[in-house]
Design a protein around this nucleic acid. Structure first.
Lengths: 343, 343
DNA sequence: CACTTGTTTGGAAGTGCTTCCAAAAGATGT
DNA sequence: ACATCTTTTGGAAGCACTTCCAAACAAGTG
């Protein structure tokens, strides 16, 4: 079982008091260089390892941050997590992960994180924060940062959806399209609403009038409509309604765009020759299917989330901050831009 | 912050000793029902939360498991992690995650996990365990289970690669193909070698002679050859060499299969009409591109990994166990089986 | 009723650190 | 040489629990 060497052993071997040992190990200044060296040498010789939990108990802080993330969303959070991980380990904190497979687990995980002294802060991802938890959270004063979701009560890091939609739509317009449709998710989702706004604004500022017939906002589809089937069905509706098929589509997520493209090619439309498509998210998949899309700076969002959290920890009364990142346009083949310019 | 209520507060309020409080909270039997109730009521009234780290210090165990996983592999581990998470939280353990973005981090994470008393066990994923770490790990006697990787010194959970390859190849043969090619990754990778064996064995047991010209084992490709480009180039080589194009391919990973399919369709081969394709892994992507593939029971692997770890923890001298799971065939459209049978 | 046995209880000791306080040791000035 | 100030040091107390031991109590026995 590991070393079992304590500071008492070191103190004895180095003929000093335990206080001095502790000071050396924590780089406290008031120790003479000679004593410092003697203690350090002994520590190394005995292969001393501090006992994490004794430290945490005595120091009254956990050096731990817990992240509550939905495991069913996949793509997005995994990249954010990379940023979180890098920053967190750079700061010497530990990351305890509560992966939510089922929305009912949220409460129990929050409670666990709330155990006295257990974690110094929480990162809460992508899910609606349960109302009944908000007051509890506020009471305990445990620092928390929301990522990819919002609440007026807590700091948050998210993405400028409207702005991204604006850029995506503008890109299509600048490629010469005057008839740009949108395939959206359901308007119960905040991002969906914002992306629609961005789309409208882009049309407007380019002097194109908005036409409701060119927009499909996911209907009674299961979940929030951010899925492949929803995209597929949206296109099928266009065709079945006999409405005019736009020459270009802004689709509110990459995964829906997959469905859109599948439906289009099934019906004999070539992408991008007949219909251009731009998605949103830049999930891993997008690269493989050469989808032009709006990239969210997921890694940086993770890094910033941790930075914000530690700032909040050392400064509990700081004003609440909401940061939104700007997505960037990633041009691949599905929008037709490359073909036009290159070959 | 939080409550700050300790067992001393409870003891005073309930007029009992701290020992009794502790016994009640830990469901120790020797407490009379009346006392038990009295203490419990007080605990609830005061909103008592045990201090995790004080418990861990006193109990001399951490109730924590750490997982060291590569973040660059994506697909696979994320699903395994779901199983890990569910099982771990069912057991009341915490999961501390060390996500490796860069192979150099491995050593430092192992060292961190090795801090005395910090974790009760380690899960090590998908990477080659650094030689120099093995002896350290052995010395500390910290229980560890390898997932998706092997070492004779530690328990492991992995997948029966040969068997899966056998099943995939057999499936193609049973669909009537006598000329089945294989696109493999580089033979430096253990799974690649095993999958090749399974492929050969399948041919053999169906009386088809093995032909080297039908197999492309990733060449000087970057990394281990489990990537999209490798698949793409393999097909291009077939075409450039002017060798006969098999009517069916077993490809050693889904991501390579993506490249294979892209190359084929670029060259005018329809999948599955002209060439049937079966992959390996069943990553998320596979469903979207309707790829027939071998599914690894990732979730269960995660669950089992934790089960094995706790078994090992409570039974340190148990013989080392290597478990391999059997992959199962998931039939989608890329192999041509559905088309044949249904429409 | 005294004696044994068994159950329940209180609290000291132990877990391995950090931190505070007072004492010891050095440095400085006269 | 002594008084004063500063730096360095030892170790008690505290962090919040678990566990062990002995004491207290209850119950059973001849």
């Amino acid at each position: 079982m590991a070393s079992k060497v304590t500071i008492y052993d070191i103190a004895r071997e180095a003929s000093v008091g335990i206080g001095t040992v502790s000071r050396v190990l924590n780089n406290h200044p008031s120790v003479t260089p000679e004593t410092r060296k003697r203690v350090k040498d002994v520590a190394i010789r005995l292969d001393y390892q501090p006992h994490t939990y004794a430290q945490r108990l005595a120091r009254r802080q956990s050096e731990t941050i817990s992240a509550i993330i939905p495991f069913f969303t996949n793509y997005f959070f995994i990249e954010v997590l990379q940023g979180v991980q890098d920053k967190i380990s750079q700061l010497g904190y530990d990351l305890v992960l509560y992966g939510v497979n089922n929305i009912d687990q949220v409460d129990s995980y929050i409670s666990r994180a709330l155990q006295r002294g257990k974690v110094d802060g929480i990162l809460f991802f992508s899910m609606r924060l349960p109302e009944r938890m908000i007051s509890r959270l506020k009471e305990t004063k445990l620092p928390m940062v929301l990522v990819d979701t919002l609440s007026p009560e807590f700091d948050s890091i998210s993405v400028a959806n409207a702005e991204g939609a604006y850029a995506a739509t503008t890109h299509l317009i600048e490629l010469g399209h005057r008839s740009v449709g949108m395939v959206n998710a359901q308007l119960v989702s905040a991002p969906a609403v914002e992306r629609l706004q961005g789309y409208k604004r882009a049309l407007e500022s380019h002097g194109i009038s908005y036409s409701e017939s060119l927009v499909k906002s996911g209907t009674n589809n299961k979940a929030d409509g951010f899925n492949r089937e929803a995209g597929y069905e949206a296109i099928m509706e266009f065709i079945n309604n006999g409405s005019e098929m736009p020459k270009a589509f802004f689709v509110s997520s990459d995964i829906q765009a997959m469905g859109v493209i599948a439906a289009l090619s099934e019906k004999g439309f070539r992408v991008p020759e007949d219909v251009a498509v731009v998605g949103f998210d830049d999930i891993e998949l997008a690269r493989h299917i050469k989808l032009t899309t709006m990239r969210q700076p997921m890694y940086q969002m993770g890094v910033l989330a941790i930075e914000r959290l530690v700032t909040r920890m050392s400064n509990p009364d700081m004003e609440i901050l909401h940061t939104t990142f700007s997505p960037t346009l990633i041009v691949r083949e599905s929008c037709g831009a490359l073909r036009r310019n290159q070959n």
